[in-house]
Design a protein around this nucleic acid. Structure first.
Length: 290
DNA sequence: TAGTCGTGGAC
DNA sequence: TGTCCAAGACT
């Protein structure tokens, strides 16, 4: 059980964990699920205010499921990747229809919900239900790459070896495994960061393979940087922002003015409609989905 | 499987 | 100032 990493990281977590509301004893499985979806590719600081709004307005899955999906998209605000709002609304409906309104506790049932992949299913089962699962997010993968493999960064896509590695150091006792998982995530978020790790604050520095090897620089293929200006994604964001801010349906010119390239604009609008994020009304106006 | 999908803060 | 990055999922 004790591999030399477990105790120092758990002790570090007890002393240094952030006081986040979805970690409070009063947090419900639904609150945990909402937080996990919002936190996908999105920093904690931006999630906090939206999470408070959501859980106050929709304290249960049933409360959200009773609303039009467009309300979820509107309340998503500027968190980004708004399809997550649609999928969270879909998850709420599925939880009501298939699970009597209670967030399911099994990894399999969680995985079957829209917008929930292997990471989020493991995270909810672990953090909300104190089960034992290997929780592999970007933080955990980076910590293990450095600590165990001696690499500055993990592979671009998750490998079976990484899963086996994570399971090999996962404490056997389920509640301890759950604390361990969140502790490693927190270590990656606060100390073992991507850009400039704060190794002086690391509780397992003397056991870190990467550090012991002299912190060799990453030598793999270049990790692609994402350009954004001028992309369809930016265009979609502009169009959807118009609809979020409007009180009701909008006329086409209100959308046209936020993006000059007509061809790209029409293409982006089509994809928003195809995604179910925008509803083209029969009178020619556009609205958030009902 | 590699591309797509938002947004904004940090350095 | 531009690049990098943030608790991924889906196709």
């Amino acid at each position: 059980m004790n591999n030399g990493y477990t105790d120092p990281i758990l002790a570090w977590y007890e002393a240094n964990a952030r006081d986040l509301p979805w970690r409070a004893p009063s947090a419900t499985p639904w609150g945990v699920l909402v937080s996990e979806i919002m936190l996908q590719q999105t920093p904690v600081s931006r999630v906090l205010p939206v999470w408070h709004e959501w859980t106050a307005r929709w304290p249960t899955a049933a409360a959200l499921a009773a609303e039009p999906s467009g309300e979820a998209v509107r309340a998503w605000g500027r968190l980004g990747y708004p399809r997550r709002a649609l999928r969270l609304h879909g998850s709420a409906q599925a939880i009501v229809e298939r699970h009597g309104g209670e967030v399911p506790s099994s990894h399999e049932d969680l995985l079957a919900l829209p917008g929930i992949g292997s990471y989020t299913a493991a995270a909810v089962a672990s953090f909300a239900f104190r089960q034992r699962h290997a929780v592999l997010d970007t933080n955990v993968r980076r910590v293990f790459a450095r600590l165990l493999s001696g690499d500055e960064y993990p592979p671009k896509s998750q490998t079976k070896a990484e899963v086996a590695q994570a399971e090999s150091v996962l404490p056997l006792d389920p509640p301890t495994a759950a604390r361990w998982s969140v502790a490693v995530m927190e270590l990656g978020a606060l100390v073992c960061t991507a850009r400039t790790p704060r190794c002086v604050d690391c509780p397992v520095l003397d056991r870190c393979t990467w550090h012991l090897n002299g912190r060799p620089a990453y030598d793999g293929p270049p990790r692609r940087g994402q350009t954004y200006a001028g992309t369809d994604r930016q265009c979609r964001g502009r169009l959807l922002a118009v609809l979020r801010q409007a009180e009701g349906p909008v006329e086409k010119p209100a959308l046209d003015i936020v993006w000059s390239d007509a061809l790209q604009r029409e293409r982006a609008l089509d994809t928003l409609i195809a995604d179910g994020l925008v509803d083209p009304l029969e009178d020619g106006r556009y609205a958030l989905p009902g």
